[in-house]
């Protein structure tokens, strides 16, 4: 079985910051906006290097989204930065009308997604953002798995014309994808070949899926692991090809099972190849304060939960 090495835990938001720094040097049309969270979003370097292209809007997310939409008129490529909660739910109508419906080339970059921002608790732990964003016509939704991939995705979305939601997080998580691996929007990555079950995961749950595959391998179960970094447009073919072989699937994400990756996968399967599926996701609930590890354990978002879901789904084949 192919194995992956964690080159050291890193936060994905720093991957975003590094990608933005790179874009500052390579693409003069890239501009950045932030709603009073420069440090949290790791936008300090871009601000320091390109003060004329950086817009601090204060605690006014609705205004930030509108300004970003306006900046595209004149050829700029705005990257907005705030927490995932304030990047989506708080400004849904602004994104819907001024960005998505208006087809503006705005990159909505959202940190602190999901439960694992930790101690701040449920007011800040959005578990509905993927659903909100994927429902908007024309919106691309990307949830990279680690530091390297977040950096690569940040760079890649500048080259894509159209609105993008880029989701990443606060905690340090395993960094295992190759440095400078090209990021192809909408192209799932096969990480491990297997024959008994397909595990498709997004965000830092990809690492948990790899860990689960190791455990399953020791138990004699051959798991195929696919990294779905782009939830919309979804790589239907990668999913269908895999389940043709394995005949069952587990989806894993740090998001409500309603509206997330799992639901998108279920749609593909229902339309093309009905297949038993189990969901590793939060169960229509708000989060709470705690450490990331405690929360992932309590809400069933780790490798142990994935192993359990695999054992369950395999019995349904």
């Amino acid at each position: 079985m192919k194995t992956y090495t964690n080159t050291g835990n890193k936060d994905t938001r720093s991957g975003f910051g590094a990608g933005l720094t790179e874009l500052g040097k390579t693409n003069e049309n890239v501009v950045a906006l932030c709603a009073d969270l420069i440090g949290s979003l790791k936008m300090d370097d871009f601000k320091k290097n390109h003060p004329e292209r950086f817009f601090q809007v204060g605690i006014a997310e609705a205004n930030m989204i509108g300004i970003a939409a306006g900046l595209t008129i004149g050829g700029k490529i705005p990257f907005t930065g705030t927490f995932a909660n304030f990047s989506t739910g708080r400004v849904y109508d602004q994104i819907r009308q001024s960005v998505a419906y208006s087809d503006k080339n705005v990159k909505i970059c959202a940190s602190h997604a999901g439960l694992t921002l930790g101690e701040d608790g449920a007011t800040h732990q959005i578990l509905e953002d993927i659903g909100l964003m994927k429902m908007l016509p024309g919106m691309t939704v990307i949830n990279p798995c680690d530091y390297n991939q977040t950096k690569a995705a940040t760079i890649a979305i500048a080259e894509h014309h159209g609105p993008v939601y880029l989701r990443f997080g606060r905690p340090s998580v395993a960094n295992f994808t190759p440095e400078n691996q090209k990021f192809e929007i909408g192209k799932a990555l096969h990480l491990i070949d297997g024959t008994d079950v397909t595990i498709v995961a997004t965000g830092h749950l990809v690492w948990e899926a790899l860990e689960a595959a190791k455990t399953l391998n020791e138990k004699g179960v051959s798991a195929e692991v696919i990294n779905i970094h782009t939830i919309k447009p979804l790589d239907d073919k990668a999913i269908l090809d895999s389940v043709t072989k394995t005949r069952c699937i587990v989806t894993a994400e740090e998001h409500n099972y309603l509206g997330g990756l799992g639901e998108s996968v279920a749609r593909v399967l229902a339309q093309h190849k009905p297949t038993p599926q189990e969901f590793v996701a939060t169960n229509d609930t708000f989060g709470e304060s705690g450490t990331p590890a405690q929360l992932m354990d309590k809400y069933g978002l780790n490798s142990a939960a994935i192993v359990k879901a695999v054992e369950k789904v395999m019995k349904r084949k």
């Binding site: 501009v31 004329e52 292209r53 817009f55 609705a62 205004n63 930030m64 989204i65 509108g66 300004i67 970003a68 939409a69 306006g70 900046l71 595209t72 008129i73 004149g74 050829g75 700029k76 705005p78 109508d93 602004q94 819907r96 009308q97 001024s98 419906y101 208006s102 503006k104």
Partner: peptide, 26 residues
Amino acid sequence: RIASGSLGQGMSVALGAAQAKKLNND
């Protein structure tokens, strides 16, 4: 140049366009 109808969004957009003009030395 922008969709409008849901109220209150146009000034932000106009400001963004104004700042783009400044960046473009227009």
